[in-house]
């Protein structure tokens, strides 16, 4: 309540002062909103279980359709089970409640001052997961999994299982702001899990095949760097989606050999390479059918330009 009252007071004061000075209502500028300070709403899920699908709760229908095979046969994905529950679920068979988020480190919805995030004079909407420091403990990391059947042209074809143990997305965030008549943003997605398993069974969920396991997975992916390199998502006028990560081309004047001439533009680029968004992936062991393939590492992957568009087939 105190926060709400404070915000109301700030807004009232803004209005009051503008009334005194200009004797007329004026619109709140981005620069006014950018002075909003970081007070937000914390979210914690207590004793949480989510369990849905055709093989649980006495049956029913849970289908995703609209997909087609390359020879134009309809594909229906029937979800047998989709669960979020406490770790130790034994692939969704034992569902116990779990706390997601911590009271002193919750999921958070906030308005941030863009000046601190490379977006001058604008307010940023942020939805963030708990921070990595002092983050979710093992008891606060849920098991998440999905089992689904593929029906092709009305015939049950195959059952696929995906199970993630003790999932944590600490440190992930989504930031959005308005830029030049469109929505811009930056995103971080962190995934930490001791075990991610995939395997296939026949349409009766029997005779399951070998398991592909990813053990001790850490994925830390970041896209977008303020207004310097925004991430945009929009739909084109012909009804296709368009996802892009801004290009670095033309961000500095180049000399005869193609390098950046020194100056402030080059310093911004140096800052981008030193402190900009990077993606790191570490998988301790990839195990296929009990055979260990060893460690996989991707580090310091930086995206200079990404442009994804959908097309009709």
């Amino acid at each position: 309540m105190l926060i709400i009252t404070n915000k109301i007071l700030v807004v009232l004061t803004l209005f009051a002062s503008s009334t005194l000075v200009n004797a007329d209502l004026i619109t709140l500028e981005d620069s006014d909103l950018s002075e909003v300070d970081g007070e937000g709403i914390g979210l914690v899920l207590e004793d949480f279980i989510y369990n849905a699908g055709e093989a649980v709760n006495g049956g029913g229908t849970f289908e995703i359709n609209g997909l087609q095979t390359s020879d134009d046969k309809d594909v229906t994905i029937s979800i047998s089970q989709f669960y979020i529950a406490a770790s130790g679920s034994n692939q969704g068979t034992i569902l116990n409640p779990v706390n997601i988020g911590r009271l002193n480190n919750p999921f958070n919805i906030e308005l941030r001052d863009g000046d601190n995030y490379g977006v001058d004079n604008k307010a940023i909407f942020e939805f963030s997961a708990p921070s990595v420091a002092n983050g979710s403990r093992l008891s606060e990391r849920p098991d998440v999994g999905i089992r689904f059947d593929l029906d092709i042209d009305g015939n049950p074809f195959q059952s696929l299982d995906n199970h993630i143990k003790s999932l944590s997305i600490d440190g992930s965030y989504l930031r959005l702001w308005g830029g030049g008549g469109r929505m811009e943003g930056e995103v971080a997605l962190n995934i930490y899990t001791p075990n991610m398993a995939f395997f296939a069974c026949d349409s009766n969920h029997e005779n399951c095949g070998q398991t592909v396991e990813f053990r001790d997975v850490s994925i830390e992916a970041k896209l977008g760097y303020g207004e310097f390199q925004p991430v945009t998502f929009d739909v084109s006028s012909d009804g296709h989606f368009h996802f892009s990560v801004g290009t670095l081309e033309g961000k500095c004047a180049t000399n005869s050999t193609g390098g950046c001439v020194s100056g402030s533009d080059r310093n911004v680029l140096i800052d981008f390479y030193d402190n900009g968004p990077k993606t790191n992936i570490y998988i301790d062991n990839v195990v296929v059918a009990g055979q260990e393939f060893g460690t996989t590492t991707v580090s310091n992957l930086q995206i200079q330009y990404l442009d994804v568009r959908s097309r009709d087939l």
Binding site: G38, G40, L45, D47, I49, Y50
Partner: peptide
Amino acid sequence: FSVNINGDVSLRGNLLLFPTGTP
């Protein structure tokens, strides 16, 4: 894609909301 759901879904627990930051 389209989604069709017909049946029961278990959704248990509490969602807790509270102010954060240093007002």
